[in-house]
């Protein structure tokens, strides 16, 4: 790892100014060792950043810490009854927050088992959303893959058992954030602030960038901008949510598949609103629109769950080693829908 200078931002504007370039852009130029001007970047928990630096996928001349910024590490109720989560809230604090546990249990669940307690004590929600993909070709300096500014995706015809089954024609990464699966399902808004003090609010689902829009980044964070908060809209009374994930192992592992379901049902158990989001399925959290359409207006029962799960996979395009994700997702979606419905009537 090349040495760098260190600073601590005291204001959000200073912090945004310190981010001269996004990590994604900084990684597009091959790392240099001969003294060329490198990036000035910002760091919160920095788990992913340190990993990128150690693997020489990223070099930085200056790193500015966000940990001194006031107000970035708190969780508050919003006026409309939603929740505002500072971007620097650690995953550990998020998972044990009474507010989150009471109102958004699926989010607590998604973060409570991410990585390890050691990581969760340091990693922040903002960093979790902005972390770069775990694709092993992307993570090895030897491969100058499409996402790093190279010519092609090595995974599409390579080792792709943990890769995408949707939207994988250009680049087959899956989005690495499990929290994002739930946050998209909940309709979360991300708030960014720039060096001039202006705030930008955008739906997380729109903030995340699929490959055909720009294969070099997973989100639309800009240079001289930092992520400051994630806001969750208020829920209708009786909204139920479930997050299910399945890793190859249950200890310290990335999910092979994860599913977030958010429902609003009417008195007859008829579905008024449904979000079915798949994680570890596509370069961004994948909204299973066909499944949502099937659920809408249906009474949620075994048959509806089965139909929705089946429909969710209809347009999947598995690669040669990840076809198993289809039955796996189908199972998780069906179980998650039924669990959410059961919760409702528990």
């Amino acid at each position: 790892m090349r040495n760098f200078t260190w600073g601590q931002a005291q204001t959000v504007m200073d912090a945004a100014a310190a981010a001269s370039v996004t990590v994604a852009d900084a990684m597009l130029s091959p790392p240099n060792t001969n003294g060329q001007a490198g990036a000035s970047i910002v760091k919160a928990g920095g788990i992913d950043l340190l990993d990128l630096l150690k693997e020489k996928l990223l070099t930085a001349d200056r790193i500015t810490s966000l940990k001194e910024l006031p107000g970035l590490d708190v969780i508050t109720r919003t006026e409309d009854g939603g929740l505002r989560i500072g971007a620097a809230v650690t995953l550990a604090n998020l998972a044990r927050s009474p507010l989150v546990l009471r109102h958004y249990p699926a989010l607590a669940n998604a973060t409570a088992h991410a990585a390890s307690p050691q990581i969760r004590n340091v990693a922040t929600l903002g960093g979790n959303l902005l972390q770069r993909p775990r694709c092993w070709y992307f993570r090895a300096a030897e491969y100058r893959c499409l996402r790093k500014g190279g010519g092609h995706c090595f995974a599409i015809h390579g080792e792709n058992q943990y890769h995408a089954i949707f939207d994988n024609q250009l680049c087959a990464i899956v989005h690495p954030s499990t929290a994002a699966t739930v946050l998209v399902a909940l309709g979360a808004i991300v708030e960014c602030a720039d060096a001039m003090g202006a705030a930008r609010r955008v739906r997380l689902e729109d903030f995340l960038v699929p490959p055909d829009e720009d294969v070099h980044r997973e989100n639309s964070l800009r240079a001289q901008e930092i992520l400051t908060a994630i806001e969750l809209p208020a829920l209708n009374p009786g909204t139920r949510m479930v997050h299910l994930k399945q890793g190859e192992t249950d200890s310290f592992d990335w999910p092979l598949a994860d599913v977030a379901i958010v429902f609003d049902l009417d008195a007859e158990r008829r579905c008024k609103r449904a979000a079915v989001i798949l994680g570890a399925a596509a370069p961004v959290p994948h909204r299973a629109k066909a499944a949502e359409a099937i659920l809408l207006g249906r009474i949620i029962d075994e048959e509806a769950a089965k139909d929705a799960a089946h429909a969710a996979l209809a347009d999947a395009t598995p690669l040669h080693k990840n076809g198993y994700k289809l039955p796996l997702f189908e199972t998780l979606i069906r179980r998650a829908i039924l669990r959410a419905a059961a919760d409702l009537h528990a």
């Binding site: 920095g46 788990i47 810490s65 004590n121 340091v122």
Partner: peptide, 25 residues
């Protein structure tokens, strides 16, 4: 790389991976 926790120390009482934290932090 924070994948084995052999380097666990306590920072202000909380376990962290000391390999994935800068000394300056």
């Amino acid at each position: 790389r924070g994948s084995c926790c052999a380097c666990t120390v306590l920072r202000d009482g909380l376990p962290v991976c000391s390999c994935m934290m800068l000394a300056i932090e």
